[in-house]
């Protein structure tokens, strides 16, 4: 077997060919296009699995939402105007994120930075409001330890918040990326995926808003 070529040869070949530059133009384009389609498609598949994750958490919430165990109900805790404000902020961040994608497609670096920055700020404010709300509940003694209902509430909303945090981290990295490298194809692809992710979180939030807050607050 030893006489056969192996990956070590490939490394040798690699040093000889100094990566991309030697690729024929067509092969390069075809490979890249295929890879891009795959990545976006793969990201959709990932979002689907994330949907299942949220669906499981919603199911848990549905089972536990009446188990207040002597603790407060949703109606006692939630302030709809506050949550509505959160919702509007997140919705507008989704809009600005869309604008960032549009600008990226036009390879307009400054505008991309602007819109990503605005989206980041809006997302961060949303997160701040959520943390503030959690903090308020915990201080009142209504933490996740209080009841099955509150456990599932904090976990469902908190998981969304965790996703938002990851999205913000990603956005920060992308801002740095755009700032240093401009709008390359890779950056464009990543911004597209980021915006998919962000819109997805928006949709999940709409469900949270409706099922957790709206139904919770209406029920007496």
């Amino acid at each position: 077997m030893s006489e056969l070529p192996n990956a070590a040869d490939a490394v040798e070949v690699l040093t000889r060919h100094k990566n991309y530059s030697n690729l024929t133009r067509t092969a390069k384009l075809i490979a890249k296009h295929d890879a891009d389609t795959r990545t976006i498609f793969g990201f959709w598949v990932y979002l689907m699995t994330d949907c299942v994750l949220f669906a499981s958490l919603f199911a848990v919430f549905a089972v536990l939402h009446n188990n207040t165990y002597g603790g407060p109900t949703g109606a006692m805790l939630f302030s709809l105007p506050y949550v509505l404000a959160e919702t509007l902020i997140l919705l507008s961040s989704s809009f600005t994120c869309g604008l960032a994608v549009l600008s990226a497609q036009q390879r307009h670096k400054k505008r991309v930075l602007l819109w990503l920055g605005v989206t980041f700020l809006l997302g961060a404010s949303f997160l701040g409001l959520e943390v503030n709300e959690f903090n308020k509940f915990v201080r009142m003694g209504d933490s996740w330890r209080r009841s099955g209902f509150l456990s599932s509430y904090f976990t469902l909303v908190g998981t969304h918040g965790l996703h938002i945090t990851i999205g913000l981290l990603w956005m920060a990295v992308m801002i740095g990326f755009v700032f240093r490298r401009g709008i390359t194809d890779l950056v464009l692809k990543r911004i597209r995926m980021l915006s998919l992710f962000w819109h997805f979180l928006d949709v999940v939030w709409i469900f949270i808003f409706t099922i957790v807050y709206l139904f919770g607050a209406i029920k007496l």
Partner: peptide
Amino acid sequence: TVTLTLLALDRDIGTHFFTATGGGN
């Protein structure tokens, strides 16, 4: 992933997802 995480939360931070008491199920 969700199920394991919820069990971990029950054990580590005192939530009540699957406890017999505290409104868990």
